[in-house]
Computed example of a mutant assay.
Amino acid sequence: MTDRVMLDIETLGLDPGATIVALAAVRFDADGVGDTFQRSISMTSCQRAGLTIDAETLDWWLAQDELAKEQLSGGDRLADVLEDFAEWYGDADEIWANSPSFDCDILSAAYDAVGLDEPWDFWNERDFRTLSSFEAAPEPEQAGVEHDALDDAVHQAEIAAETLRRLGEPEVKA
């Protein structure tokens, strides 16, 4: 069985080096979703690590509904969250994101900013956006809060799991 992780982050910018306010992930396979990881990250700790806040992205966040905006306050120290995520991630086979060129790149930059290595190798990155464009992909309504990192990760993982089930569970090449 392939150990897959769907990642979603919420940020205050669109480029590597942006402040991350929430990090969530869920394990999944063709049978569905499993164990989850969710943490809120302190904006102050991100800025202390040299990460930046983009004013346009902050304005966009301030226009979101109250439940989504809750991610902008509080949170734990960036380095602590990244260490905990690396431990939770373990030796997973694949990391999925919508898309890796956003989530994985920004998260990698955050790991660099605090002097840690991300827990995955670039060749383990998979693109949910590509998978969800296949005709076999379902189009369910999202449960939960849009732009909540965990709700987004679970929604994406559910679609990916069903799509993989419909396509036939591929084996990971050793």
Rank of each mutant, 00 (worst) to 15 (best):
L150V: 07
K173T: 11
E87Y: 07
L164H: 02
D152F: 01
L131Q: 10
E94M: 12
E56A: 08
L131M: 15
V5E: 03
E162Y: 01
T163M: 09
D127K: 06
E139V: 11
A160P: 07
E158T: 06
D105C: 09
V5P: 08
T2V: 14
S99D: 11
S73G: 14
P16H: 04
V114C: 11
D31C: 10
T36C: 14
R77E: 15
S73F: 02
A161F: 06
F122S: 11
M6N: 14
Q38F: 11
D151V: 09
L116S: 13
G17I: 04
A63R: 13
G74D: 11
L58T: 11
D8M: 01
S132F: 10
K173I: 11
L78T: 04
F128K: 15
A86W: 01
A79E: 12
A18T: 08
R27F: 13
R166A: 15
L12N: 03
S108D: 13
E125Y: 09
I9E: 01
S45D: 03
R48W: 02
P138G: 02
L12Y: 07
G115R: 00
D148P: 01
S73C: 10
A86K: 00
S133Y: 03
D112A: 15
T2A: 14
D84K: 07
S73I: 03
V114P: 05
M6L: 06
T19C: 14
A97F: 07
G75R: 03
F134L: 15
S45E: 05
D29H: 08
R48P: 08
C46K: 03
G75A: 01
F128N: 14
G144I: 07
V145C: 04
W123H: 15
G32C: 10
L67T: 09
Q47F: 00
A110M: 03
L82S: 09
N98R: 13
T130W: 12
G75T: 00
I106E: 00
P138W: 09
G34R: 05
V81I: 13
D84Y: 02
M1S: 14
D54F: 01
L78D: 06
L62Y: 02
W60H: 13
R48N: 14
E118C: 05
R4L: 05
G90A: 09
R48C: 10
D15H: 10
A24D: 04
P170V: 07
G168E: 05
D65N: 15
K173Y: 06
K69C: 13
I20F: 03
E141W: 01
C46P: 13
G13K: 12
A136T: 06
W60C: 02
E146N: 10
H155C: 04
A30K: 07
L72I: 06
E66V: 07
Q38A: 15
A110L: 01
S73P: 01
D84P: 01
S40G: 13
A113K: 04
L23C: 10
E135M: 12
